[in-house]
């Protein structure tokens, strides 16, 4: 029987789907019986998932002004001849 401390130590392997079969069963049995670890596991999973959504959220809110700003600075860099000539217009 796993202790609560052992279960929390395996939390990352759990959310990353990297527990072996026996470990997964052992964790699942512990979670069925332990309200504290169940709460911890649910909140841990929510936190990890929320980090991924930060990126998706950011991806949805890319501002055209940022793209324009980058393109402007690329044009300037090109004009200041830090780029070998003759690479454009192909």
């Amino acid at each position: 029987m796993l202790t609560c401390q052992e279960v929390t130590a395996k939390a990352s392997l759990m959310v990353d789907g990297e527990l072996g079969f026996r470990e997964r069963i052992a964790v699942r049995i512990h979670l069925m019986m332990c309200v504290n670890c169940r709460r911890f596991a649910r909140q841990f999973q929510a936190l990890v998932s929320s980090m991924a959504s930060r990126n998706r959220l950011a991806a949805e809110t890319i501002v055209p002004e940022f793209v324009d700003g980058v393109m402007q600075s690329l044009y300037r860099a090109r004009e200041s001849s830090s780029i070998p000539p003759g690479r454009d217009g192909e």
Binding site: T3, C4, Q5, E6, T8, V35, N36, C37, R39, F40, R42, Q43, A46, L47, S49, S50, A52, S53, R54, L57
Partner: peptide
């Protein structure tokens, strides 16, 4: 390790979060 006693059990239950879904956290 400060969450657990010598036998590896929670000393205090983990606090309940008001936001416990990814959406609520965000």
């Amino acid at each position: 390790s400060d969450w657990f006693d010598a036998s590896g059990s929670w000393i205090l239950p983990p606090p309940v979060w008001h936001e416990d879904s990814p959406y609520a956290l965000l």
